[in-house]
Structures are given as structure tokens and as C-alpha cells.
Design a protein around this nucleic acid. Structure first.
Lengths: 258, 258
DNA sequence: CTTTTCTTTTGATCCAGATCAAGACCTGGT
DNA sequence: ACCAGGTCTTGATCTGGATCAAAAGAAAAG
């Protein structure tokens, strides 16, 4: 039972209960009381402007960040100064998970547009998740999902020709947008061609050519940053990578002939 | 390094308290009581023979596995039937983390040699980690480290020429062996050339040529599966990737060898 | 032991995609 | 509006590594 809803200020302050994304960022069945506890440890901060850092490489880790709106990219810098884009992050996603172990951010996070985030101090979250079993479970699942996603990306980078990589990226974006209630087949790329190319391990020119080629094949329609997917099945066929959420049934596994 | 295959029953019943690896697999400061609780939920099972599956792709997830001795590779299969090697796993490492979220293994794990593991039922581990704060914290860190490691591998695959990838792989192996008390500069590859190539996103022939070339440059000495690193600093210079290790500066154990 | 089979090495060729180059297009600043 | 400094597209060339091919070792089987 909630005893009080202290909304004393003119409340720009969105609460978890009212956030349309909490289903994504903390979707386990938390009671109202638990949600309140969570809400109390979360810090809201002014939006991060385009090009601004949410955190930098090497910075001490203290909080995870849940993206409320906008988008960010994360990237590392190599010894030669080259930057390597690790990922692009949409509303409802949690970033910073990679820094828990080392207490230091292994990548930098930069806003691709004006972006608002919830800052979640990790030590508080950790102790809270001891009190709330569902929260602990959810964190394990989120981290596991991140591992699975990264392994999928590794596979894409290791084995696939460029055409497949781009198709795979587009379909993944489409799925993620859909999941959070946006149109699945029409969206804006917030990353530049250069960043996309970097992330997919190819040259910007190649991205450009492929987008043109996909358009010629009637798979998509491109206009600057705006993408419309005309033939999702066709694109998916090209992507044909590890379906991240696939549930292939397992046969009975006792075939261990010694 | 002598390979011991002595597996008798008393050894199979080794307890966490007596396990030389628990520092790696569960290194937080657990009291004796806590260690006992952990010990109680762990199942020991007969060793997995070379080529046998520990778990298969798509199989229902129920347990994590801590590797006690031996080694395994994990891999996924793509829609075209191609297998993609995800990683090679050494004693002291925990595998299966990627399946927590989906409750289904997204990769298969095969023993590369006779391998013994501790099976840790995850639901028990989860509830135990609610009781033991240090255990919860440790699990978060392990998962985070896995994420960081995977991101590092993504970077290697996306940006590096083959020479760097292989050097990076060898140095990473060296570090991991060192961490668990084996010789850092002399070890056996338990994976075939083909598997290594697959994992690093290149052709087996290229691995073969590069090993030869590294040997010609005096960086390593290769004899079949046995590798001896002669010039760690030189190899590291070629690898020059994201330093995975938390705070440790690279050691220059070999003072000077020309 | 010999034969078969699998793994690795070595050599020769080829091509996907990088790089180089140059022009077109946006976007923001004055 | 104009100009300057990005970002994107398009075309021409080049090359790192894949692929193809075949022999040489190891290991396993008879």
C-alpha cells in the first residue's frame, strides 16, 4: 500500500510508476511498494545534449543508466586512437553493465540526440535487489540478455559478408523499435553512416552502396536518415543470423557415445 | 606442463573448500559456513569426455557450470548450418551465463579434452545469492566481466587485421593461464587450427601461415599444439587491443631477448 | 607393421570490400 | 542569403585474406 505520494514540487520528475518504459527496464512483477523503493534510489538529471558524454572511457563506475528517451552510442578507443563503436542504445535499455566488474567504464557513451536517462546508483540497486527477489532476478536476466546479444554480434562480425551484416542490423533495429511500441518498419537512424559502418566492421562507402542496393532491390526506402522497410521478410532472409530470441526445441540430449 | 588424467572417485567428490579454483570461480570472502552452503547445491558429475556435449544449442537452461579441469569450446550454429565458435573456456571459468535470460542455451558446449565440471543449479544459486551478499555481488561481477570480454572480442573482430587477432588471442590465453597458476609462456592449444580460425573470423590456412610467420620472427615457438611464447612484449605490441585485465599493467617478465 | 583418415602446411589464384579520389548534398553560422 | 565545414554518394583502383588445390604429417584403425 502506498502511504504517500509526495509530489511536492511542480514535478518534472517522472516516477517509475508512471514511466511507460518501466515494463522494459524493470519488467518483473514488482508491487507498488517495491516500485516505490526503486523509484527512491533513482536520480533524474537534465537531458544529455547531442554529442555530450553520459560517461567516458576509463571513468569510475557508480551508476547504471536507463534510457528514457533519445539514443546513445557506446564506443571504445583503441591504442592507436581509432574508435570502435560497440552499440547503439534505445529507450528502455540499460547501459553501463560492462563496468560493474571492473568499477571502471570500458567504453564511452555519447548522446546521438537530446537524450534523457535515469541514473541508478549501482550500490543502492545491488542492496535493493537483495531485498526484492524479482529485482535480482531481473538484473541477472538483463545481463544475460546483453551477453547473448553481444555473442550474436560477434557471430555477425566474424562470419557474415557485409550485405548480411547491414540487413541484420536493420532488422535488429526494427525489432527493438517494435518492442517499445514504435513503428517497426519506419524509423530514423540516429547514427551516422560512419558510425554504423564502424560498428559493423566495414567502410562507410560500403554502407552507402548497400543502402542504395537494398533500395534498388525494393527492400527498403532510404531518405537521408529515414528508413522505411518495404520487405521485412526479404531483409530478414538476407540477415538470417542467430535469431536472438529464437527458441529452437532441443532434442533429448543423451547422445554422448563415449 | 604435465597433463594429469588421474580421476579417481575421491577427487570427484572434491569440495569447494578444498578446490584450488574456488578463488577464481567464487572468490569473494565467503565464510566457511557460506562455502558449505554453496558446496551443498553443487552437483559433481562424471567427467565430460572429449567431443561430448556439456549442453547443446537450444537445450533448456537449468545450471551454470564451473570448469574444474580440462577445457571446452562453445559455439552456435547459423541458419546455414555453419558453426561459429564463440569461445574457449578454461578451468576456473563459469559457462552458461548467456542462457539465464532466455532459459535456453544459445550455444553448445563441447569438451575439447576430458573435462570435469561442477554443475551449479541456477535457481538454487539465485536464492543462495539472496542470502549471501558477497555471492550476489560476485555473480554480477562475473557477468559484467563476461560482457566486457565479449565487447573486447567484438572490437578485435571488427577492426583488426588477422595478425593482430591471432596475437591478441595468444596473449589472452597466456594471461588466462597465468591467472590460474599455469605457465604464462608455454601452453597447449586444446582447440584445432580450424576452431581457432573460426573463432577469430578467418581461414584455417591463415592461422597456419601466421603461426609460421610469428615463429620466423622469433615471437613464438610452435610445435603442433604446443606453443611457447618467446617474446611476450613483441606479441603484445602486435595484439595491442583493449586491455581486458582490470587494473594490472602488462608485465614485462622477459627482460630482454633478441 | 600398413592403411585409412583427419589435421596441418604450403603454394597459387581470386575477389569482396577497403581505400583513394572527387563531387553532391546538408546544416549551421554570420 | 551566403559560405564553410561536415556528411553522404559514386566511381576507380588496389589488396588482404579467402578460396582452391594438393602434399605432408599425425593419429587411429586394421
Amino acid at each position: 500500500m502506498s502511504r504517500e505520494r509526495v509530489v511536492n514540487l511542480s514535478e518534472v520528475r517522472t516516477q517509475c510508476q508512471k514511466c511507460s518504459l518501466y515494463q522494459l527496464c524493470m519488467p518483473m512483477g514488482l508491487g507498488e511498494g517495491d516500485l516505490n523503493k526503486l523509484d527512491k534510489i533513482i536520480k533524474r538529471r537534465r537531458p544529455v545534449e547531442k554529442g555530450e558524454f553520459l560517461f567516458r572511457l576509463g571513468q569510475d563506475f557508480s551508476s547504471l543508466y536507463a534510457i528514457r528517451s533519445g539514443s546513445l552510442k557506446t564506443y571504445t578507443s583503441q591504442s592507436d586512437g581509432q574508435e570502435q563503436v560497440i552499440g547503439m542504445h534505445l529507450p528502455g535499455e540499460l547501459i553501463g553493465l560492462d563496468a560493474i566488474g571492473s568499477h571502471r567504464h570500458a567504453c564511452a557513451a555519447v548522446a546521438l540526440e537530446t537524450t534523457s536517462v535515469c541514473e541508478i546508483p549501482f550500490d543502492h540497486l545491488e542492496s535493493l535487489s537483495r531485498e526484492i527477489p524479482g529485482l535480482q532476478q531481473h538484473l541477472f536476466r538483463l545481463m544475460s540478455a546483453e551477453i547473448q546479444h553481444d555473442q550474436c554480434h560477434m557471430t555477425v562480425l566474424a562470419r557474415m559478408p557485409v550485405e548480411n551484416r547491414l540487413a541484420s542490423f536493420l532488422m535488429s533495429l526494427s525489432e527493438r523499435y517494435k518492442l517499445r511500441g514504435y513503428a517497426a518498419n519506419e524509423f530514423n537512424l540516429s547514427m551516422s553512416r560512419g558510425d554504423i559502418a564502424n560498428m559493423l566492421g566495414m567502410a562507410m562507402e560500403t554502407i552507402s552502396r548497400l543502402l542504395g542496393s537494398f533500395q534498388d532491390q525494393g527492400l527498403i526506402q532510404v531518405e537521408r536518415k529515414h528508413i522505411r522497410i518495404l520487405d521485412p521478410a526479404g531483409l530478414q532472409a538476407i540477415a538470417s543470423n542467430c535469431r536472438e530470441s529464437s527458441g529452437k526445441p532441443a532434442d533429448n540430449s543423451s547422445s554422448h557415445s563415449a
